[in-house]
Design a protein around this nucleic acid. Structure first.
Length: 852
RNA sequence: GCCGGGAUGGCGGAAUUGGCAGACGCGCUGGACUUAGGAUCCAGUGCCGUAAAAGGCGUGCAGGUUCAAGUCCUGUUCCCGGCACCA
């Protein structure tokens, strides 16, 4: 190379498109690049982002989600871990059917086309996935195992068929799980559509078998956001209480079992309230036309309130049935009412009403003139409890009290009474302590086409018969007319519907409902560990190596649905011996939403920013890096196009710097960068070296701790700004103040630090620096704490709490010296002279002087 | 109503443990280089104040603790998210 060649300033333009296309093509050629190693002595790290529904195109929320995961995956690779970082497609579901109906494209074709498009987008953004493990849930090699699991659940009594009231969305034309009903009665996919109640035969999974464990184990997930754990706790809704039987006051009268959490107040029960849909209500109404009329009305009111989402504010109405029920504790007869605020699907659908000690009962009693009888008084320290309260102080609802007028239980505290009185009920055979849950079994039948067929057969002779394992998968037929409405589309496919009974060989019908798509996502992350297994959903040994997932990243909208079903599935798989772990996910991270102009991005508001457009204008690196720079990943991100431009400018600056200075690397190759010592460097060079190590510290700390990548990137920007300031910009010549080996070392480390955030550019610059190795497997920059230390520090000086001066001291200066120098400062002097110094404080960072 | 999270310049946001409020980026102002620049570089940029300084004020609001408070305590307002007659 001729001499002058080296001094020519190569101030090339950063061409993101060209660089990214070049590396994209290279990465495509090496499918093992991001592959997890099958047998590795390295420590494993399983990082996972929630798989998308292939709706057609990625949105910015996806880009943000995957940018976080990708940065982490790359960081872990560089730290020598055996990283599993897979991706797949949650590809069954309604939108595919709707597209088929409106655009006449078969769901399968529509879905696969979308997957191809979104996969291309992901590749363009440079996400490092192990595509050899790609999981596509709508393909038979995956859903076969949904069916297999269903058979296992059935075998273990955890899948059952039941006729019951279910949620029906008229727009989806299918049943919804309780978890899919939002805002007090609307469809999760059509938030303006009210969910109806229909009586249907459905398949349920017995999630309630694990109610208690699902709740308890939340305490063993410290790596989950408290918010998500709280939401799950609320959803499971465990409530300790007692069941008590009130017998109707006529011979052979029915027993009304009530559920209460406050059995200690039962001597104050002045009525029993039934839900309008309670079987005993129906019974009583059947004999009493006037009552029946009123009950019908209450049912209608309740239904209306439920559907419009304000069951919480329903105007309380009720009707006295004219019957009496006996309080088993004291033999008192109390009236039996039916009320519109009593819900049939919680507890037993019947309550005892204690007007003096419950807000709702109080309100109801006042309205209908029912007796209000106080049996709890506020606790007095040590004493017998205070006097009865006047009516203004009622209802008294806290547990902080003592019982009065309660027979043999009088004088006990509420807590004692609850224990003793539950035990008493059990001894006398009219009740017991119990626990109820809000969590219900999971209804998984869907009257739709694009889902996993449920592997069950109905035989006239043998009834419900499971399909034998060897006959799986039951293939979802391709040629189905789904444009007709009403009932499951599969019902209209005779060659699917008609089959032979596996038991007797006689004619039989297949189940034509398909599974809720949350079945697919409940276990997909296990499939990634062994994605091509055709003998089992996965090999247990392989799953044991990878599980639990070390870090799961996704939106908080799945806090209840997906994440509770997944936990259920894991517990079931453990119980049948497939896996050893109790929980699927060790650490969960929920990223914030993206908003623009104060609102969530949405088509109707017209504030959607398309990733494609950003990639086209600024490249993939800038787009993804901006999503990490704009704010910390847990917070709401306020999108600003100019921000992406800012990142693009920054990357351009890095590119130009390295392109001007990379020759130094080659010159300095023979010198060991690590042999550099800070002594002997010019101050300017020493400052650069210090800044480099401070930057390494900041970026590493962010990965290890708070994940505030916005500040990591800011730190890298500071380093680049300082580097660029050493250059002579007028003559446009490379830095002369920095020794060549140091300049080489700094550039090398800068590129490594950038790799998790802007992988394309990092690879390009790595090559430009003359490196041949795979950047992804290069060790992460090592911090030298000695080199990061400042040798001089600037110490602010406060007088009476106000900043009055600054002194520069060598690092580690003694307190006395620092204070002496501070007091000698001219400006400080002017505030101190003539006053009494009452206090001198030196914290190591700051001097504070108090004068009077 | 209950449970979370938040409120900091013109904007997005920094400030991990009480220790220089405003890092970093955007925007804006002035300048350099240029035929030109929406490229690049340099300088400036919280508010009031000043020729410039000095000085004062300043993290939703009102108090408090402290030499020192965005950070801790008490009260309060508003915004966002979740739950909500769950007996």
């Amino acid at each position: 190379m001729p001499q002058d060649e080296q001094t020519i300033v190569r101030d090339e333009r950063y061409n993101a498109q060209q660089i990214e296309e070049k590396w994209s093509a290279r990465w495509q050629q090496d499918p093992t690049l991001y592959a997890a190693e099958p047998d590795s002595a390295k420590q494993k790290y399983y990082v996972l982002e929630m798989l998308p529904y292939p709706s057609g195109a990625l949105h910015m929320g996806h880009v943000r989600n995957y940018s976080i995961g990708d940065a982490l995956a790359r960081y872990m690779w560089m730290n020598g871990y055996n990283v599993l970082h897979p991706m797949g497609w949650d590809s069954f579901g309604l939108p595919a059917e709707n597209a088929a109906i409106s655009a006449n494209v078969p769901p399968r074709e529509w879905t696969l086309r979308n997957i191809a498009n979104m996969k291309a987008q992901m590749k363009r953004l440079g996400f490092a996935y192990d595509w050899s493990r790609e999981v596509t849930t709508c393909l038979p090699d995956y859903y076969k195992w949904n069916q297999w699991f269903f058979l296992k659940l059935y075998e273990h009594g955890l899948a059952y068929r039941k006729k019951s009231k279910v949620n029906w969305c008229p727009k989806c034309a299918t049943v919804l799980a309780n978890e899919q009903v939002v805002n007090g009665g609307y469809c999760w996919r059509h938030e303006d559509t009210l969910v109806e109640q229909r009586e249907l035969e459905q398949w349920f999974l017995r999630t309630t078998k694990y109610s208690d464990e699902l709740l308890r184990d939340l305490d063993r997930l410290p790596g989950w956001p408290e918010k998500v754990r709280t939401m799950q706790r609320n959803w499971i809704g465990r409530s300790e209480g007692a069941l008590v039987d009130f017998r109707l006051d006529y011979s052979g009268g029915d027993v009304i079992t009530v559920f209460t959490t406050r059995v200690d107040t039962i001597y104050g029960a002045t009525s029993v309230q039934l839900a309008p849909e309670h079987p005993i209500t129906e019974e009583l109404a059947a004999l009493d036309p006037a009552l029946r009329l009123k009950v019908t009305q209450l049912i209608a009111e309740q239904k209306k309130a439920k559907e419009s989402g304000d069951i919480g504010e329903i105007e309380k109405h009720g009707v006295n049935t004219g019957h009496l029920a006996v309080n088993p504790y004291n033999g008192e007869r109390v009236p039996v009412w039916v009320a519109n605020y009593i819900l049939m699907d919680y507890g037993t659908g019947a309550i005892m009403s204690v007007a003096a000690h419950d807000e709702r009962d109080f309100e109801f009693a006042k309205k209908y003139g029912i007796e209000i009888k106080q049996v709890i008084v506020p606790a007095d320290e040590g004493g017998p409890g205070g006097p009865p309260l006047n009516e203004k102080e009622l209802p008294f609802t806290t547990l902080d009290g003592k019982l009065i007028n309660s027979g043999e239980f009088t004088g006990l505290t509420c807590e004692e009474a609850i224990k003793k009185m539950s035990a008493y009920a059990e001894q006398h055979n009219f009740g017991k302590a119990t626990v109820t849950y809000r969590l219900k079994d999971w209804g998984i039948s869907r009257q739709r086409y694009w889902g996993t067929p449920i592997p069950m057969v109905y035989c006239e002779k043998d009834g419900i018969v499971p399909v034998p394992e060897k006959d799986l998968p039951i293939i979802l037929p391709d040629k189905v007319d789904i444009t007709l409405t009403g009932g499951s589309p599969l019902q209209r496919v005779p060659e699917f519907l008609n089959t032979k009974c596996p038991k007797c060989g006689g004619p039989a019908r297949r189940e034509t409902d398909t599974m809720d798509t949350f079945v697919d996502s409940s276990w997909y992350f296990y499939r990634y560990t062994d994605a091509h297994n055709d003998k089992a959903p996965f090999d247990s040994k392989v799953a044991d190596y990878w599980f639990p997932i070390d870090q799961y990243i996704g939106g908080v909208e799945h806090a209840i649905l997906h994440l509770i079903y997944s936990r259920f599935w894991t517990k079931f798989m453990r119980d049948i011996g497939l896996i050893k772990n109790d929980e699927p996910v060790e650490r969960l991270f929920t990223q914030g939403m993206i908003i623009k102009s104060g609102a969530k991005m949405s088509k109707s508001l017209g504030n959607v920013v398309s990733p494609d457009e950003m990639v086209e204008r600024y490249g993939g690196d800038s787009t993804r890096m901006y999503t990490l720079f704009a704010t910390s990943p847990d917070r709401e991100l306020d999108w600003q196009d100019e921000g992406v431009a800012g990142i693009y400018r920054f990357l351009s600056k890095v590119y130009r710097f390295v392109s001007r200075n990379c020759a130094s690397r080659r010159e300095g190759e023979t010198l060991q960068a690590t042999s550099l010592q800070s002594n002997g460097l010019k101050p300017e060079a020493g400052a650069i070296q210090r800044k480099l190590h401070q930057t390494i510290k900041r970026v590493t700390d962010d990965f290890q701790g708070r994940w505030h990548f916005n500040t990591s990137i800011a730190a890298i920007m500071e380093l680049v700004n300082e580097l660029s300031a050493t250059e002579d910009h007028v003559a446009r010549t490379p830095s002369s103040a920095i020794p060549v080996p140091l300049l080489a070392d700094v550039q090398r480390n800068l590129v490594l630090l950038l790799a998790p955030f802007a992988p394309y550019l990092a690879h390009e610059l790595w090559e430009m620096l003359g490196e041949k190795s795979n950047l992804l497997k290069e060790p992460w920059p090592k911090l030298d704490p000695e080199l990061a230390k400042e040798d001089e520090i600037e110490i602010p000086v406060q007088v009476n709490g106000k900043l009055r001066g600054k002194v520069v001291m060598p690092a580690g200066a003694l307190e006395n010296d620092v204070i002496a120098k501070a007091l000698a400062d001219e400006k400080v002097q002017s505030y101190v002279t003539g006053k009494d110094i009452v206090k001198r404080i030196f914290t190591g960072k700051l001097v504070s002087i108090v004068v009077r």
